[in-house]
């Protein structure tokens, strides 16, 4: 009786769909876009990696393991994969080392200064990577300001371009904003009071960093490294331009196979391989996150 009265007095809006139904409805648009724009092309890539390449860019629809077997038996491609992973890991590590102090400083600053610094960190993202890469070409060129400066100091001028060094320098700079933002996003657990507590308990600044600050910022580090590694593996404009065709990485090779050689089945196979590498990176990331928790 009283329940009936309460219900008539306070009308409770009842969702037309259940809780699950509402969630499905809200997720549907993005799910559709992903299905059509991502999943289908990837499945198409997978199918194409089992097709046969004909000379002149033709594709014969069939089922052959030739592309995969060919990859596994070709030391050039094995080295390419290894090289890609090593270079990307190097880039990720350098980006982390250079970005971490900046992110930590940003995390601790406040007010207008912080806003200003954040804008400064994000601003490179407003310029395309192509433009920034050309900027690096101008800086790193054989007669450019940096080599000239090193030569003027009496050292043998190093080659900073058209080799792996150039690619690393360029990509590290391009990826730094992503790393800094990821680090900042993961610094939530870092409470200045906790650092103070460590110091009052007798930890010197260096000890405080290793025992308290670093462990508490691991989530940010893991996120930033995952993002930068994925971006490094998949970037091809910067390696192409700064590598000058002499640095062979997975992404540039896919580009060459797809656009220059017109061997789409091989390009597809390599692309699927890149996806596998991403999958592995994600698995490592998930493991690290679990370990931190």
């Amino acid at each position: 009786m009283s329940v009936a009265v309460a219900e008539s007095v306070i009308p409770v809006p009842r969702p037309a769909l259940g809780r699950v139904g509402t969630a499905t409805l809200l997720l549907l648009p993005i799910a559709l876009v992903n299905a059509v724009g991502f999943l289908l092309p990837v499945l198409n890539l997978l199918r194409m990696s089992f097709n046969e390449a004909l000379s002149g860019g033709g594709i014969r629809e069939t089922f052959t393991l030739a592309n995969w077997v060919g990859l596994a038996g070709d030391s050039f491609y094995l080295e390419l994969i290894l090289n890609s992973v090593v270079v990307s890991l190097t880039i990720t590590a350098l980006t982390l080392v250079l970005s971490y102090p900046i992110a930590l400083y940003l995390h601790r600053s406040s007010g207008r200064w912080r806003t200003f610094l954040t804008v400064l960190v994000i601003s490179p993202l407003l310029t395309s990577a192509v433009v920034r890469t050309y900027g690096w070409i101008a800086l790193l060129a054989d007669q450019g300001p940096i080599t000239s400066a090193i030569a003027a100091l009496g050292f043998a001028p190093p080659r900073l371009m058209f080799n792996t060094t150039g690619v690393v320098i360029g990509l590290v700079e391009i990826l730094m904003p992503y790393m800094i933002l990821s680090l900042l996003a993961g610094f939530g657990r870092l409470d200045p009071r906790v650092e103070e507590a460590a110091m009052t308990l007798g930890a010197r600044p260096v000890k405080t960093f290793w025992r308290v600050v670093l462990p508490l910022t691991l989530p940010g580090i893991a996120l930033g490294c995952l993002l930068c590694f994925v971006l490094a593996v998949s970037s091809f404009i910067t390696p192409k331009l700064l590598g000058g065709g002499r640095v062979f990485l997975l992404a540039t090779e896919i580009y060459d196979q797809a656009i220059v050689t017109l061997n789409w089945p091989l390009a597809s196979t390599l692309s699927i391989l890149v996806l596998v590498i991403f999958g592995a990176a994600l698995a490592v990331y998930a493991r690290i996150l679990r370990a931190i928790d």
Binding site: R193, V194, E196, A198, T200, L201, P215
Partner: peptide, 27 residues
């Protein structure tokens, strides 16, 4: 600070969230 030998209890407790209770006390 780290040489002063003071025991400070913070308003927010400021425990090390990544360490167990025993590790916190052992620090």
């Amino acid at each position: 600070v780290y040489k002063r030998d003071m025991g400070l209890v913070f308003q927010s407790y400021a425990l090390f969230p990544h360490m167990t209770v025993a590790k916190n006390v052992a620090f």
